[in-house]
Write a protein that binds this DNA or RNA. Structure first.
Lengths: 334, 334
DNA sequence: GTGAAAGCGCTAACAG
DNA sequence: CTGTTAGCGCTTTCAC
């Protein structure tokens, strides 16, 4: 069943069918009804490929993320998909892993597949080595690129992010204000976002007149989905490093710290305070529940999609939008 | 840059370019080299839409799931995407929620978008009211439909699932064998899979000569991502219902039970044993860690995709494959 | 081994 | 308001 069949049965030209299909106003109520009746009767649906070929778009957006099984990224993907679908766009999901080569390859692939735009979920798509960001610049020459939780200045690239620096600074200050000075910062990524968190931590210490100690900023090199291994990592740290609190770059690491405390018989929050990041489901699964920074994921996703829609509709849109996080206080802090 | 431009620059016809593009053998090594050189030089990529129109396929598979932010589903989606991409297929992700109307709508939409096939992730796509499964039969008339963790007999529908009945029966028996008889079964879905688990629980009790008590099979009506509300639910149960163990239909519910125990001052596993399902990240985040049924998600996903590829390549494939789960013993059981 | 040409099904500019 | 027609870029017979 093609548009020709419909036009024939309805006794009109294909152009007219196309018009009613696309809601053009230039059709008399009568012909419209006639055509609609045939369409209904034959259960006709336009061929999506032909449409794509003509319009050079199939109303699809690519979503690139390193690992959609990661709690945080999965949530982001979910919300973005929901928002896009509400706007009548389809999503092609593409999980790249963390290797530059693959990110590059898949971004390229999506561009060649003629998606209307792609949104990169997670700051790990931006490297500190600027040359490694060229693949994004390249893609941005073809289609708009949206970044969730990353900061990058380039034409046709748009960012929505949470101020991780400020949030972490506030979280750190919160601990400092309760009189705790020995705070371990735990992170497991060197992405833009992670580094911003690290700076926030440092900045809070400095502002409170405290010296920075490198050994109190620990990089966990493993997989943060392996919770026990995080606890082991902390257990194997140099015992010289004595801390009364842990600020973690995400909830997984924070849970690792809690597990470590349990293992060592430390009482939380009396002996050890813990603050996580993301306010994910992990923050309510433990005992006591985890104080965590809510980085407004849903808001960010909502915003990035409405920006995207605006761009595709050729409205003028802000290149960068920054939200503030919020510390959700639960049982792991005083 | 189109195939015409390439053909012109290479001094051949577009048919020849198409041939080298598609690896046809009927091209002399010399011409092939010439054409490839031009393609390389111009950085030419074929237009995906035109290709789709000609071949009636764009090598994309639809993935339907109720909620990709759900831990279990997110993992499934991740693995399926990875496997498909490894086979050079793209994935259109579509989160439907749990309403029949929407599942129907989106399955239809994907069929109309001319995906090559769709995989339905999670048993919630199959209803016990068989009439509500007609939308799947409808779709199966157009393209192959794959079901992950659901059981459904129909032409052009293929299932990969874990034997939830058996796994739950084994888990229950395991508890019974340690001498615990008062076991609460906690579930929050009435999907095929959840009901199979329930039967497994019942069957184990019956086999051990124990009577079934309806009040020991509790349906939690809330959102299982809200962990504290699960604990509250248990706390508000009729105090007449005294139990020494909880078998939960997923890890979220099990974590709720652990939270409940903490709240009540019950010691785990001495006063209360808990068994979860899915062996997700939640099973290692708590204290003690959760005994949970591993339902071989990765294996299932691997299998479902290789079945799919087989079908698309017109090989004969099994309509149904059933794996067995495994009880992973951790600290919440004796 | 290679080229010419007929679709694939739709959109949109143009003419009436 | 409606019809005619020229693409969109590729695949695939069918000749040579």
């Amino acid at each position: 069943m093609t548009i020709y069949d419909v036009s024939e049965k309805a006794g009109v030209s294909i152009a007219t069918v196309s018009r009613v299909l696309n809601g053009s106003s230039n059709v008399s109520a009568e012909t419209r009804k006639k055509v609609l009746a045939v369409i209904e009767a034959c259960d006709y649906t336009p061929n999506a490929f032909a449409r794509g070929l003509g319009l050079n778009s199939m109303n699809t957006i690519g979503i690139l993320c390193a690992d959609s099984s990661d709690l945080y990224l999965a949530n982001a993907v979910y919300h973005i998909e929901q928002e896009l679908r509400a706007n009548n766009y389809n999503c092609i999901l593409c999980c790249t892993g963390y290797k530059l080569e693959d990110k590059q390859k898949y971004l390229n692939l999506l561009v060649n597949k003629k998606v209307d735009s792609v949104v990169l979920v997670g700051s790990n798509f931006i490297s500190n080595n600027d040359k490694e960001n060229d693949y994004i610049r390249e893609a941005a020459k073809e289609i708009p690129i949206l970044l969730l939780n990353a900061d990058f200045d380039y034409e046709n690239v748009y960012c929505s992010l949470c101020d991780d620096f400020k949030s972490t600074m506030q979280a750190t200050s919160y601990l400092l204000d309760t009189g705790i000075e020995d705070i371990l910062f735990l992170y497991n990524s060197k992405s833009y976002s992670a580094l911003r968190k690290l700076s926030g931590y440092q900045s809070a210490l400095t502002q409170h007149g405290l010296a920075l100690r490198m050994e109190y900023m620990q990089y966990f090199p493993g997989n943060h989905a392996n919770l026990p291994s995080i606890a082991d990592f902390l257990a194997n740290l140099d015992p010289q490093i004595k801390y009364k609190a842990v600020i973690a770059a995400d909830d997984n690491l924070a849970i690792g710290a809690i597990k470590y405390a349990h293992k060592k018989g430390l009482s939380i929050p009396k002996d050890l305070c813990v603050i996580g990041y993301n306010n994910s489901i992990l923050s309510t699964c433990c005992e006591p529940e985890l104080t965590s920074v809510d980085n407004r994921l849903e808001t960010l996703c909502h915003h990035i999609v409405s920006t995207l829609i605006g761009i595709l509709e050729h409205r003028e849109m802000p290149q960068k939008v920054i939200f503030s996080g919020e510390l959700i206080k639960r049982g792991t802090t005083l």
